[in-house]
Simulated scan of single mutants.
Amino acid sequence: MSKYDGKGSKNDEARVHRVGFLLIPGFALMSYASAAEPLRAANALSGRTFYRWRHIAIRGTDIQASNGVRIPADDTIGSAARVDSIVVCAGGNPATFSHLPTLSYLRSAARHGVRLIGVSAGPFILAQAGLLDGYRCTIHWEHMPAFTETFPTLPLSRSLFEIDRDRFTCAGGIAALDMMHAMIRIDYGTRLASAVSDWFLQTEVRRGEAAQRLSPAERFGVHHPKLVDTMLRMEKRIERPLAPSDLARLADLSLRQLERLFAQYLGTTIHRRYLQIRLEHARGLLRQSTLAIGEVALATGFATPMHFARCYRRRFGLAPREERTAR
């Protein structure tokens, strides 16, 4: 593969890299744009066509994004020409995606050595096709609870993106810009990748292992270290919640001291905050997985579906079953 020399010169031996954007209905438009626009920039800045791309639909003549924007399809999975990379862009609830021809199309592409890239919820679909077995991968944090429940043996990370041989996975959003910097660097060299990032005003190109979310102190809105550590423990112990006395012991505080911190900084109790964390996790599973409601209850530390449903309705104003059918 040729390298861009940073001076606008051309190497006639360069091979055009053909990219197919497989857009799943309801895909996240920002994730798609963050992955597609760097390819256009690479061509513009190099003065030659390093990348060509087409939009592939699973059916029909156009594909609607999550915000209603429609992108015309150049091909469908049944008629798509050979490409070098496929970028699977998805959103919504990928756990409910069930389209065997799409999974077969991706498996066929993998057998022919096509680079497979999952963006936002795209890694979920690659995993459904069995194409992430044995590969490091990541996915948007919103989809992580459902992903780990559905694919418990896959080595999922919480990073912005993962590149493992010919599998690229990305959390989505603007993180796709960072991943495409890495891809362009692999394909055509560091100078072109840096020029593209500079064009998009990226004053800092984040490495793949960077965290997806704000720091815990920023996310929780508190800066007391023991309180932050306690809430992180709560998030990690959802299925088997720790007792308040155990949380206090692990924080090297008395139960009264820990309760005082929750009241002072959060205006609530340990029990209420823990319940809120578990119910938010349950809401994500209801929206992003196909787990039965009883399974969601067990996965979030509730002894019975009835108790879970009662707490859920009190928190969100609707029953778990209604939450699922409302999406």
Rank of each mutant, 00 (worst) to 15 (best):
G26K: 08
G26M: 07
F27D: 12
L29N: 10
M30V: 09
M30Q: 11
S31L: 06
S31G: 15
S31D: 10
Y32L: 15
Y32K: 15
E37S: 09
E37M: 08
L39N: 05
A41W: 05
A41R: 02
A41G: 03
N43G: 10
N43K: 02
A44N: 08
S46K: 00
S46R: 00
S46W: 00
G47Y: 00
G47P: 01
R52D: 13
W53M: 08
W53L: 09
W53K: 04
H55I: 15
I56G: 08
A57M: 11
A57S: 10
I58Q: 12
R59L: 06
G60F: 14
G60I: 10
D62G: 12
D62W: 12
I63C: 08
N67I: 03
G68M: 08
G68F: 08
V69E: 11
R70D: 11
P72Q: 08
P72Y: 08
P72T: 04
A73V: 04
D75K: 09
I77F: 03
S79D: 15
A80F: 14
A81I: 12
R82L: 10
V83C: 07
D84M: 03
S85R: 15
S85E: 14
I86D: 02
I86P: 14
V87P: 08
C89R: 02
G92P: 04
T96Y: 10
F97C: 06
F97A: 04
S98C: 13
P101Q: 15
P101R: 15
L103H: 10
L103W: 11
S104Q: 13
